[in-house]
Amino acid sequence: MKKLLTVVVLGATAMAAQAQEVKGNVDAAKNKVAMCIGCHGIPGYRASFPEVYEVPLLGGQNAKYIENALKEYQKGDRKHPTMRGIAATLSDQDIADVAAYYAQQKPDSQNNTQK
């Protein structure tokens, strides 16, 4: 019985650790956002594949929104092929870092690598 209780407690502890939210690191993201700036750093930019798509600037966007969007691209719930490909390469920590980076910017920062 004692062993069973230990296994249950360890299992619950492991599940709680997995459920903890990953914290974004703005400084770590500075080396990760280069892939974003080529499209999301150009005011008024439109991508033309697979259809004309207005690319949003990300500065000042809510971090949770960015995290959710990237995870939706990973799962295939959002369909833009370029974003799906990029999101597929990101870890949960990468996503949290990028989201924190853009959330701390001002909307008029144009997503530069400098604040």
Rank of each mutant, 00 (worst) to 15 (best):
A34E: 08
Y102I: 03
A103M: 10
D97G: 11
A16N: 09
A19Y: 04
Y73Q: 00
E54T: 12
N31S: 11
F49M: 09
M15I: 10
T82V: 10
K75Q: 15
A16Y: 07
L90Q: 09
N31M: 04
Q74H: 07
Y53E: 11
T13A: 15
Q104R: 12
Q93F: 08
A14D: 07
D92W: 06
A63N: 09
Q18N: 10
L10K: 08
T89R: 14
E21H: 08
K75T: 15
E72G: 14
A88N: 04
V9W: 08
D27A: 12
P50A: 05
V8Q: 13
D108Q: 13
L4S: 12
K30P: 02
A29E: 07
V26M: 06
C39P: 06
K115R: 14
A100M: 02
P43A: 01
K75M: 14
M35E: 11
T6A: 15
L90T: 11
I66R: 06
G41I: 00
A103P: 11
A14S: 10
L70Y: 06
K106N: 13
N31A: 12
A34C: 00
E72C: 13
G60M: 10
S91C: 04
L4A: 11
Y65I: 00
I42S: 01
K106E: 13
L10F: 13
K64M: 13
Q110R: 15
I86D: 05
G59M: 06
L90P: 07
D94K: 10
